[in-house]
Design a protein around this nucleic acid. Structure first.
Lengths: 334, 334
DNA sequence: ATATGATGTTTAATCGTTTAAACAAATTTT
DNA sequence: AAAATTTGTTTAAACGATTAAACATCATAT
């Protein structure tokens, strides 16, 4: 019942543990006699030997485990990312340990520390507001890191993100096409650059025919109440185009637009940066800026892997393109 | 730059590594002189020493890591569970490693094996169809396990689940209240007992006034197409009550009910076992059997913890109650 | 004065691997 | 036939912690 170790295999095959290890890892292949190798393989099979990865990791100082710290694991953006990174990692023989910072820098730092204590080989991080110092620390310690979804202009560090500014700017063309000229831009009250880029992009994407947009900042801790107030107010100000800067904002905003009797898209057009499954339940077409999640996850992991294998790799900041499309509303036959 | 070890701390404090370890772990408190202890604490702080958990786990044969294998990490049921278990674990000083079997027994076994190789202290498992043999194996090896959400009648093993049969049976009373008598029951084509219990419960929950229910089995691999056919067919058979046996079935079913022009709940009432966020976007009230996710996760972890601490603990099978409620549809002011 | 006990600290083995270095035996080169 | 090389295998140290046991030193009881 006790765990089978190299020792047991070696005893059974009548060789030293070193030889078993060599066979197991395929090193010194040319030096080991065919018969011995076979005998060892046989013993491994018969005893159903399974290496103790803990011992191996300990000795080799490599855990094949990476820390993935997302912003909010309950958000489909995060959970899908986790799934993609997980698959990518598995294919490369790595496992991931997922943590959710819930956008708290304190919690984030705690998670980073605890992952470090567990000797992760690297990190993929959706770092929250105020996490610059811990990122600097990781950089100084030469710990492989890839920032995902976000970026921090003051820190030169590997990252994978989308072009938030440009995507938002272009989305305004859609409002223009539909003849919407009174635009409201709903964003978070935040210091995160990638989110503020969305606002900036939208603002600077206004067409000449449009009036000065109204910008509202929602507090993340209080989305529902804030949104209710905001939408209620704006409905009486002739807004005919809403731009929501995140999937959660859009979800909440849409709900309140409906309760306020908005007719979408005839009276009011809606564009959201990213979406959720719930959008597909909505009876009207919503414009969505789609993020290439699969590519983000895959690129982030590959970049991290390169960095793990070559710690002195020059910093690489990958910016991916988004795509734009409308949801296909379910049309009732009634 | 190199990692600070006990060795370094010991050298700095001018003591042996054993003493540092004792201070670190708070053992032999009464034997260590106050001055030495302070000197060591000082050295720990000055060097910013952080224990190598890998080494510790290796020595103590305890990783404080548990494997959480869910059915499908993309399903909110799974991801929320992961979040809850993760928090519960964190509070107890454990980490979790999440895997998604995607309901494949082969993949499930692979994940279990790989977690074992990494020396997890135990498992919380949403075991898929056909995983009995690997569960037996875990049981025989006395590896702490808690099955969650499901159960396997042939295996006596710790579990936390809801009363699927009773919940479904009682849900039929709702149809009765609404005067719905022609019920369609939509389930998965599966061998999983907890899912079939839902069907059985619904069937045996029929009221005398109801006609024999129609039961349809959807293939999980092909939900959308199967559901389209099924709903299309049933709409012409005078069905006025739909019971969906899972959140995903309900989501898909609702979509197709809308496209088929169903008027909910006037003509057709809908009850679903569990729901998703998308349900809240739906303009009509949907009956939902709600699972006590937080309690499931918490109980599962606590049960596992007890088992880890006392491996000879008698098997405990926890059955939790569900609750029933309708979604609050968003009403347009139009 | 000597045995006994308490106090404070160190020694050394151990966990299961990996891997450089040493070694012995067989083979090839001089 | 001695030297050099190749082939096949073993020895032993190391990774960073834990912990039982040993060891001093000092205080107290006899």
């Amino acid at each position: 019942m006790a765990k089978v170790t190299l020792q047991d295999v070696a005893a059974k095959a009548g060789v030293s543990i070193a030889l078993v290890s060599y066979v197991l890892n395929g090193v010194k292949k040319d030096r080991i006699s065919k018969e011995t190798a076979e005998r060892i393989q046989q013993a491994i099979k018969e005893l159903d030997y399974r290496p103790n990865y803990l011992a191996r990791s300990f000795k080799k100082k490599k855990t094949f485990n990476i820390g993935l710290l997302v912003a909010d694991i309950a958000n489909p953006f995060s959970s899908q990312l986790a799934r993609i990174v997980g698959n990518e990692a598995e294919a490369a023989g790595y496992t991931i340990t997922i943590g959710s910072s819930d956008e708290s820098a304190t919690r984030f730092e705690k998670l980073v520390r605890s992952s470090l204590d567990r000797q992760v080989d690297g990190f993929i991080l959706a770092a929250p507001e105020g996490s610059e110092s811990i990122l600097e620390y990781l950089k100084n310690e030469h710990i492989p890191v890839v920032i995902i979804d976000r970026y921090f202009p003051t820190i030169k560090i590997n990252s994978v993100a989308v072009d938030n500014y440009e995507s938002s700017r272009c989305a305004m063309d859609e409002f223009a096409k539909l003849g919407k000229t009174n635009i409201a831009i709903i964003g978070y009250q935040t210091q995160l650059h990638h989110l503020n880029d969305r606002i900036r992009g939208a603002v600077e994407g206004m067409h000449p025919a449009m009036v000065e947009p109204i910008i509202k900042y929602i507090s993340e801790a209080n989305i529902e109440a804030d949104m209710e107030d905001t939408i209620g107010l704006l409905m009486h100000q002739g807004i005919n185009g809403f731009f929501f800067a995140s999937n959660k904002l859009g979800e909440s905003g849409l709900r309140h637009l409906i309760t306020n009797g908005a007719r979408i898209p005839d009276d009011i057009a809606v564009i959201s940066f990213d979406g959720t499954d719930a959008y597909n339940f909505y009876p009207n077409a919503i414009g969505c800026i789609r993020q290439p999640l699969a590519e983000m996850g895959s690129q982030a992991f590959q970049l991290l892997l390169k960095q793990i294998e070559n710690p002195s790799m020059p910093v690489k900041q990958i910016v991916l393109k988004t795509s734009f499309s409308y949801t296909k509303p379910i049309k009732s036959q009634l």
